[in-house]
Amino acid sequence: MFALLKRDLYLALYSSSSFFYTSSFFVLILIILPFLFGTNDVQLQILFKGIIWIGLSLSILLTMERIFNADYEDGNLDIILQQNPSIEIVIISKYITHWIVYCLPLFIVLPMLSFLFYVSLDNIFLIFLNLFFGSFGMVFIVTFVSALTLGAKRTIFLKAIIVIPLFIPFLIFGTNLESWPILLALSMMSFVLSMYVSAYGLRLYVE
């Protein structure tokens, strides 16, 4: 499992997307805000809470084709599944890679962003908790949708139509500051669902 994890991380970080790119993406999505809505600090605080979730959703959603598609198309997925004792380990390794590459940078730039948008330290901690527990669930959802749609035509919009309704509970609770336990529960539910459905999808395509 660790060999697979290492390989996936190397591939992700050495291809197009290093840590630096992803964190710049998060900063830039939020820097648009003052240009669109002005620099009123109360308004910016409210918008910050919402737009940060849009940034997280976009970064997870737009890169979802990297989870299985590349490996599937060059035939590596067959080899990976044969080499590893169980399909679940492969899926868990993909969760970890995707989370580290496309979610972790957000938490690194989050303190800096909180200064830019006048968010108090207490609030930033709660926002951090929400994003932390929510992002796992969103990665789980994106992984199983990616496993299901391996054979579909490569359109990110189709996948967005499938994924966004599933994201909506996360977004609803994510913008409320005290609801991190609910996000944790949602993430755990989507973990169970995602394990079954991803394994089912992968088996269909690989066999």
């Binding site: 299901l148 054979g151 579909a152 189709l158 139509i161 499938i162 309704p165 269909l204």
Partner: peptide
């Protein structure tokens, strides 16, 4: 989403499973 997914997979046997 259901209808689009169904249409976007050309192998209909696979599409019904997915």
């Amino acid at each position: 989403a259901y209808i689009f997914l169904w249409q976007s997979i050309t192998n209909k046997d696979l599409a019904s499973k997915i």
